[in-house]
């Protein structure tokens, strides 16, 4: 289905299609990525009451699934963030182009363009778009932790995982200043960088040699809600099994 992209003159120019591979066999649910994401992207915290109502703003969350019953019970972890769909259901429904498709395959979210219709949130099958129900609060001096590369979203705005687009931009600019190409593994979103088990790998899916491409070709590879045809940029590698 990606061929349809070629209808669009702006998408043919890019060399990159940023993607992520997550090896579920390695994920231990340690939450390092979750906090890392908060720190990198100025994700606000909402407090207990709001969190109990389901309004936490985690751009990335570890979903935990139960299987079986005691004593043969198993739990599985799955980090889920914005899947950066190629055919993103959220993009077409935004009336003001606040979310759109970048020419490097990112599902871009332009915060200050957002008027807050929340249509994208309803359309997203992964429910990975977070709404700012209130203005974020950073009691002094906590505001000094804020990353100046990422704006703080005010109330009434939709936000979500961007694959740390600010890091992609920085690495690309640095590489350009040094007159070279971006190398595989040079760009790391905060989650991939902190992941202690190296379960999260980020890279260019257009480069067949990149680690993420290799993982995407694994026999264990699948995509979340694949049947919806959203063509996610996040590839999961399902957990393995050892027989003894």
């Amino acid at each position: 289905m990606t061929t349809r992209l070629s209808d669009n003159p702006t998408t043919r120019l890019s060399d990159h299609r940023w993607g992520m591979a997550i090896d579920l066999d390695k994920c231990t649910g340690c939450q390092a990525c979750v906090v890392s994401c908060h720190a990198e992207n100025n994700v606000p915290i909402v407090g207990e009451e709001e969190a109990a109502y389901g309004r936490t703003a985690h751009w990335l969350r570890i979903e935990r699934y139960w299987e079986g019953e005691y004593p043969n019970v198993k739990a599985k972890f799955m980090p889920v963030m914005c899947q950066q769909c190629t055919e993103a259901p959220c993009e077409a429904v935004c009336p003001v182009y606040a979310t759109y498709h970048s020419d490097e395959g990112l599902n871009g979210q332009i915060y200050n363009r957002c008027i807050g219709t929340r249509f994208c949130g309803s359309a997203c099958p992964y429910k990975q778009r977070m709404y700012n129900w209130f203005d974020p609060v950073f009691p002094e001096p906590l505001e000094q932790q804020l990353n100046p590369d990422v704006t703080v979203r005010s109330r009434g705005i939709m936000e979500k995982c961007t694959f740390c687009v600010q890091r992609i931009r920085r690495v690309k600019e640095d590489a350009k200043a040094e007159g070279r190409e971006v190398t595989d593994g040079e760009i790391q979103p905060a989650c991939a960088q902190s992941c202690p088990t190296n379960a999260i790998v980020f890279g260019d899916l257009n480069d067949p040699e990149s680690r993420v491409s290799q993982m995407a070709r694994s026999s264990r590879a699948f995509r979340l809600l694949e049947n919806l045809g959203t063509e996610p940029g996040v590839v999961y590698l399902k957990g393995g099994e050892t027989r003894v």
Partner: peptide
């Protein structure tokens, strides 16, 4: 030029 029209080039 089309790259430079990409929204995330200037929006953060």
């Amino acid at each position: 030029a089309p790259h430079l029209w990409d929204c995330v080039v200037c929006h953060q």
